[in-house]
């Protein structure tokens, strides 16, 4: 993957396929500790211990069209190549949390990429799932909670309307810029 945002988008779809009601995504940069931490937490169906133990093996997948699944292994390798760490906690019926830590300044760390576009693509796929996206930079943070957006839109207007999606993209972009300016 050329950008970290693409890994986030990919793992987000795992959470969505797991039937999560709520997906929380966090992206935290700490330039003092020199870390970039990505967490993707869902309350979906979770994984059995056996599946979890093998999930970083590329030959483990839930997809039916191919026998290989590369989403988690690619993400894990990316973090480890950047002097980082990778952790998955999962419980059947409770949900899954994926945490990847990168050395922020590491030469091999891929650029974050377009997070606003990524969040907008996620919202298009959400259905009735709630997405809470938080990005922080040295303690300053910005959050998008799709429930707040849907509450304002009411029942008749879907958050998946393209007008709303393009607004969300601009909203996230301005939110990210506001935390970087401080």
């Amino acid at each position: 993957m050329k950008e970290l945002s693409l890994h986030i988008l990919d793992i987000f779809y795992n959470s969505l396929s797991a039937g999560a009601d709520t997906i929380k995504i966090g992206l935290d940069t700490d330039t003092v500790k020199d870390t970039l931490t990505i967490t993707i937490e869902d309350n979906g169906k979770g994984m059995s211990e056996t599946f979890l133990n093998n999930v970083l093996n590329p030959f483990t997948t839930t997809r039916t069209t191919r026998k290989v699944g590369l989403g988690l292994p690619l993400f894990s390798e990316a973090a480890k190549a950047c002097n980082g760490s990778f952790d998955i906690v999962s419980q059947l019926g409770k949900g899954t949390t994926v945490t990847a830590v990168f050395q922020n300044s590491h030469i091999d760390r891929a650029p974050l990429g377009d997070m606003a576009e990524t969040v907008a693509s996620m919202v298009l796929s959400l259905g009735h799932t709630r997405l809470i996206y938080t990005q922080s930079f040295n303690g300053e943070s910005f959050t998008l909670d799709t429930r707040e957006v849907q509450d304002i839109l009411g029942e008749e207007v879907s958050i998946q309307s393209l007008e709303v999606i393009s607004w969300i993209k601009e909203y996230v972009q301005s939110g990210i810029e506001s935390i970087m300016e401080v």
Binding site: E148, I152, G154, V157, S174
Partner: peptide
């Protein structure tokens, strides 16, 4: 300038 959730009312 950070955008505000209030803008959603017009989009709605």
């Amino acid at each position: 300038m950070k955008k505000s959730l209030a803008e959603l009312e017009a989009i709605r």
